[in-house]
Nucleic acid binder design. Structure first.
Ligand SMILES: [Zn+2]
Length: 279
DNA sequence: CGTTATACCTGCCAGC
DNA sequence: TGCTGGCAGGTATAAC
């Protein structure tokens, strides 16, 4: 479900709805969703009594800053099908409910996750976030950060001759891109997904950098994607879908030149592209 | 070290 | 109608 625009949409909803309310309990319906600590009872004990000061996003990871002890955190990764929903506790359970966190008397933050790949961590105050949520250790800069310069990007890309599509999905190159927006950014910058990273000209790298920022911004502005089971915290789907140039359009005509959109497996993932517009 | 394949799951859809 | 194979937002780890 979630790439950067969807996770950012969820983060904004969480900041509107969940702050400054006491966590009064929890119910872990699927133990392996909790990545840390090992004991789910300890997880609930540690979270209980806290309030959330604010939600941060790092790449596709969500981090809730907890009140006590400071600094301590609740981390969430939605992976493919995770949803965080703000509900009344009496709302009937969704089929794929995995974790319930209760707030105050009636409210609940419910983690629903069909494919069960999603992960939740509690990060104690005396431990580094990267030591618990290990995926954060190798995470690259955010595409909206001033550090995401053409020099930074070129430096990351020169290290490997793998296809650029594979490079864009590597979260240690740039944080937050997934299959949809990687394909869209490559189309917008007119680069074939198969192009080896090392063969990109600096001018192409700059076009790609701009396209990444544009495509992610456009989707955030529309509340995330229509593709997949994505839902915001308030339970609504996004509106970014009709504006897709190539993603999920195999066999349909290119919106620019009319040539048929093709699909190719790269790094185990589908890539969608126009062989006329992209080179 | 870089790179690819596979595992982790559930469900949907096209084709036979 | 079943059944089967392929596919789906992502990442960690094993196996070259
Ligand atoms: Zn085209």
């Amino acid at each position: 479900m979630p790439e950067l625009p969807e996770v950012e949409t969820v983060r904004r909803g969480l900041n509107q709805l969940t702050l400054s309310q006491e966590v009064t309990g929890g119910d872990i319906l699927l133990q392996r969703t909790i990545s840390y600590p090992f004991s789910v009872d300890e997880f609930v004990d540690r979270i209980k009594g806290n309030t959330i000061a604010t939600w941060h996003r790092r790449g596709k990871y969500l981090l809730a800053e907890l009140s006590t002890p400071s600094p301590s955190y609740l981390g969430v990764h939605l992976r493919m099908t995770g949803q965080l929903l703000w509900l009344n506790q009496d709302e009937p359970l969704h089929k794929h409910t995995r974790v319930r966190l209760f707030f105050g008397e009636r409210q609940e933050l419910r983690f629903v996750d069909q494919r069960t790949f999603g992960k939740i961590w509690y990060v104690p105050g005396n431990m580094a976030v990267e030591a618990i949520i290990t995926g954060l250790a190798k995470l690259a800069v955010d595409p909206f950060s001033p550090e995401f310069t053409v020099e930074y990007f070129a430096n990351k890309l020169k290290k490997s001759r793998r296809p650029i599509k594979t490079g864009l999905l590597d979260q240690s190159v740039v944080a937050g891109l997934g299959n949809i927006y990687a394909d869209e950014a490559l189309f917008k910058s007119r680069i074939l997904p198969t192009t080896p990273c090392t063969e990109l000209q600096i001018s192409q790298i700059e076009l790609l950098r701009i396209a990444i920022i544009e495509v992610l911004s456009a989707s955030i502005a529309l509340g995330g994607t229509t593709f997949s089971n994505f839902l915001s915290v308030k339970g609504v789907n996004g509106n970014y879908g009709g504006e897709a140039w190539v993603y999920n359009r195999t066999g349909e005509p290119c919106k620019v030149c009319g040539h048929v959109i093709q699909r190719l497996k790269l790094g185990g993932r589908s890539s969608h592209f126009c062989s006329q517009c992209q080179s």
